[in-house]
Amino acid sequence: MVAGALGVASLGIPRAKPVVGAGAAGPAGISATSPIAKEGLKNDLLAAQARDSRIGTTLPGAKAPVTVTAESSIGGKTLVDTNQTARPTVIANPNKPTLIADLIPPGKPNSTMANAQAEIGLIQQAFRRGSDARPEYDDSRQR
Rank of each mutant, 00 (worst) to 15 (best):
D44K: 03
P105D: 09
S111C: 06
D102V: 10
A48E: 07
N43E: 08
R129H: 04
R15Y: 13
L79Y: 15
R143D: 11
N115I: 11
P27V: 15
I91A: 11
L79F: 15
L59C: 03
P94R: 07
D81L: 01
A92V: 06
M1E: 14
V2E: 15
P106A: 11
P105Q: 07
F127K: 06
N93P: 04
L79K: 07
P106S: 08
D132F: 09
T58E: 13
T89A: 14
A47V: 10
D138P: 01
P135V: 06
D102G: 12
I74R: 09
R143Q: 14
R128H: 13
I123K: 10
V90G: 07
P88W: 03
L45F: 08
R143F: 05
R51I: 00
T78V: 10
P18I: 01
I104A: 07
R141N: 12
Q84E: 13
M113C: 04
M113K: 06
P97Y: 04
E71M: 01
S73V: 15
A47S: 04
A116L: 10
F127H: 02
A116T: 11
V68Y: 06
N83E: 05
V2H: 14
S53T: 08
N110T: 00
D81C: 04
A22M: 10
R54M: 12
K42V: 00
S72E: 14
E71P: 03
P88Y: 07
G107R: 02
Q142P: 00
N95Y: 15
P105E: 12
F127D: 01
T67G: 12
N95C: 01
T67C: 08
T112M: 05
S34V: 06
A133K: 11
V19F: 14
D132N: 14
I123W: 10
D132C: 08
V20C: 09
E119S: 15
G130M: 13
P14D: 13
V20W: 06
S10F: 13
L59Q: 11
Q84W: 00
P60F: 03
L79R: 09
T78S: 13
P105N: 06
R129M: 14
A9N: 15
V19K: 12
S73P: 02
N43I: 09
P106G: 03
L103A: 09
D102C: 00
M113A: 01
A22D: 12
L79M: 10
T33M: 12
A114R: 15
R143Y: 06
G26K: 02
K17S: 15
T112E: 04
V80G: 03
Y137Q: 03
R134F: 14
A70E: 07
G21R: 15
S53D: 13
P35H: 01
A116Q: 08
G61C: 10
G7C: 10
G61E: 10
G107S: 04
L122T: 00
L41P: 05
V80W: 00
G12H: 05
R15D: 14
A47N: 08
Q84K: 07
R134Y: 14
D139C: 08
S72V: 13
D81M: 05
N83W: 00
A114C: 04
G56A: 07
I13R: 08
R134S: 13
I30F: 12
I120G: 03
T69I: 12
P88G: 08
A92G: 12
